[in-house]
Simulated scan of single mutants.
Amino acid sequence: MSKVIGTQTMNEVSTLAAQSQAVWEEWNNLGVIERVTRLNSWADNVGQRGGDFTAASNLIRFQLHQAEALLAPVHEMPGPTGETNELYTSGRGLFLVTGDESLTVTALAGQLAAVLVAGNCALLAVPASLKRDAEALIGDLVKASAPNRLVALLDSDKTEDAIVSTPICGVAAVAHPATLIAMNRKLAARDGVLVQFVAEDNASQLPLVASPTYLLRFITERTKTINVTAVGGNATLLELGGGEH
């Protein structure tokens, strides 16, 4: 029997995580430019809401501009004669995007835009006061042709469940220092691979979220090698995952 806390059970949280992961590869394989195109449409939809959503739309566009500059280029690396080596970026998987009562719709949109344009899927766990805004962001994202279920909204009391029981590869949080310390301790207590923690403690000025290289925290590097000197003249392909940023 699943444990019930609030309106969502732990099993339901795990199901939402699995559904988001199920469309992750499709989203990641679109490539940076196609993701930017769709997310620009998302920014248009968000901006049309006016009010606080105008600043949210602007921060989305900032992340997309940085993605075009930092993530889209494929870098050619030196290799033996007859071999080409390319370095490019890829998403990492499922991120939890969250915060405490200091979280604003602008901060939420900036976090989510960076996570998505880098090629990831997401769970959102936000305060109850921000639930309608989060629903609006997700609705506008689906209207912009993002895969349905790419982003799933959790109940406000499900942050700990998501940290403890879902296969997240990272957490992006905007919260007060004490809240961030508590989250970090829960992440450190997880078994297995260490989970990336991207923590912002200044919800009003967002020096981290609005920094030019913020989205580099949500990617991994990959190398693609094509050898055209294989036996019989057939090209062979080797693709390797690289380090994380």
Rank of each mutant, 00 (worst) to 15 (best):
A182C: 03
A134G: 13
L39M: 14
R190T: 10
I138A: 06
A22L: 13
G139K: 13
L150N: 12
V13D: 02
L215S: 01
C169S: 02
A128M: 07
P78H: 00
V231G: 03
A107W: 11
P207S: 11
L153G: 10
T7V: 12
D140P: 09
L237C: 00
S2E: 15
G6R: 05
V32C: 11
L215I: 02
L187F: 09
E135A: 10
R190K: 13
Q19I: 01
T213N: 14
M77C: 05
Q205S: 15
E160L: 15
T229S: 14
A18V: 07
L96R: 04
T81R: 13
V174D: 14
H75T: 00
V105Y: 10
A189Y: 00
S2T: 09
A72Q: 01
N85R: 06
T220I: 05
R132F: 09
Q21G: 06
T98Y: 07
E76N: 12
L237P: 04
L187M: 06
K224L: 11
T89R: 02
L30E: 14
A43E: 13
P167D: 14
I226G: 00
D161C: 09
A162L: 04
G51W: 04
Q19L: 12
D157M: 01
T15V: 09
V228K: 07
V195W: 06
H176F: 10
D157A: 03
L187P: 01
K224C: 05
G82Y: 03
K143F: 10
I181Q: 11
L130C: 05
G47E: 08
Q111M: 14
V4P: 03
L141H: 03
S2K: 06
A230F: 03
D52W: 00
R132V: 08
K3L: 14
T37Q: 09
L116T: 10
T223M: 01
G51N: 07
V36N: 04
Q66K: 08
G50A: 03
V4D: 07
W24K: 08
L94S: 11
A152P: 00
V231E: 12
R190G: 06
V105G: 08
Q66V: 01
F95W: 12
L206M: 05
V105W: 10
D52L: 07
H75Q: 09
L96F: 05
D191E: 06
E12R: 10
G119Y: 06
K158R: 10
L108M: 15
T54A: 06
C121S: 15
T15H: 05
G91P: 01
I5R: 13
T225D: 02
S165I: 11
T236H: 01
K224M: 11
G119N: 02
K3V: 15
A17T: 02
I138W: 03
D133P: 00
M183H: 11
Q196N: 11
R38K: 13
A122L: 03
A72G: 02
T15C: 02
S204F: 13
P80T: 08
N202K: 14
T84L: 06
A182P: 07
S156F: 09
A113L: 05
D155E: 15
L141G: 14
G91S: 10
L240I: 12
T106L: 04
Q21P: 02
V117I: 05
E200V: 08
L108N: 13
V195R: 07
Q48F: 04
V97D: 09
L194M: 12
G192Y: 11
R49S: 15
N227L: 01
G233C: 02
V171F: 12
T220Y: 00
G139C: 08
